[in-house]
């Protein structure tokens, strides 16, 4: 069970004056159950890449294998793929449209052909998973706060019980608590089920905290594809392509430069605190 991209290319407006190569020779493998972070500057190809994962965009050339089957082969069941790979777009709350929260979350399963009872069951489950309080289930989605709306939108995708959950900047514009709540919830879901999670984000701190592996996109190519610690070691190269490392990584590098024998491969606050304590205690 995995997603595999082989020499995938995508060209926008091919053959016109606006032709633009958005993805160039992408080779990637995402094993089932992994939590993958995708980072890259605006326009690096992240969003184009993830739209390939459930067949919304068809590659200009190359292949995409889902569980070993090439999705571009004739007769491939695209509908089945879309049931299994759930995509949460940027600002997903703009896509809410139903009269109440419950009906909105039921929309996905309804389109999967499930009975009204099953839809409701799935919706209840999904709304509990995203942690929305029951008193809002009958409210109009438009009366909710930004963070709540976003949870409803994510629940709408979860209700389809995807095997792979792809989220494009799910925390943009949310306050710090809303951001942590949503990411903690996603991490919890990931631990509870065997779901693959693919998270696109501009927050290096968030990616460092949650992802097992980071894919760095730059100008339509994969620049790095490695564990967070390894990727953020290249912080100078990342800056050149519009990115950065988490603030604590910079602190560790500065300490090392000032002669403190601290390891620099640190990406979270806890690790930084442990490492600093280790160095200072050793000293005493």
């Amino acid at each position: 069970m995995s997603i595999k991209l082989e020499h995938l290319n995508y060209v926008y407006s091919q053959g016109t004056a606006y032709e633009k190569k958005a993805l160039k020779d992408i080779c990637l493998e995402i094993p089932h159950g992994e939590f993958v972070g995708i980072i890259g500057h605006t326009g690096s190809g992240k969003s184009t890449l993830i739209q390939h994962l459930n067949g919304l965009i068809k590659a200009t050339s190359g292949a995409l294998y889902y569980n070993g089957e090439n999705i571009y082969e004739e007769g491939y069941h695209m509908r089945e793929l879309r049931n299994q790979v759930g995509l949460v777009f940027q600002y997903p709350e703009h896509q809410l449209f139903e009269i109440d929260v419950m009906t909105d979350v039921c929309f996905g399963p309804k389109n999967q052909g499930l009975s009204p009872e099953e839809c409701k069951q799935r919706a209840l489950e999904a709304l509990q998973l995203v942690g929305l309080k029951e008193k809002y289930y009958q409210s109009s989605p438009f009366e909710l706060s930004g963070g709540q709306k976003r949870r409803v939108a994510i629940a709408g995708v979860l209700a389809m019980r995807p095997k792979v959950l792809v989220l494009d900047e799910p925390t943009a514009g949310l306050d710090p608590k809303g951001r942590d709540d949503i990411l903690d919830q996603i991490a919890y879901l990931h631990r509870q089920s065997d779901m693959t999670v693919i998270l696109v984000s501009h927050s290096m701190e968030d990616i460092a905290r949650y992802a097992d592996r980071i894919i760095v996109m730059n100008k339509g190519t994969v620049m790095y594809n490695d564990a967070p610690k390894k990727v953020f070691e290249h912080y100078q190269e990342l800056e050149k392509v519009g990115l950065a490392a988490p603030q604590v990584t910079y602190i560790m590098h500065d300490l090392a430069k000032r002669g403190m024998p601290a390891k620099t491969g640190v990406t979270t606050v806890e690790e930084a605190a442990d490492e600093i304590m280790r160095v200072l205690e050793k000293k005493e």
């Binding site: 306050d175 608590k177 701190e205 603030q247 604590v248 606050v269 930084a272 605190a273 304590m277």
Partner: peptide
């Protein structure tokens, strides 16, 4: 935190180190 906000990561780290006795 009660107001759903946060502090810069460096401030959290400093806070954490202080709690650990530095």
């Amino acid at each position: 935190k009660n107001y759903r906000l946060d502090v810069p990561q460096v401030t959290i780290l400093a806070h954490e180190l202080k709690k650990r006795g530095l």
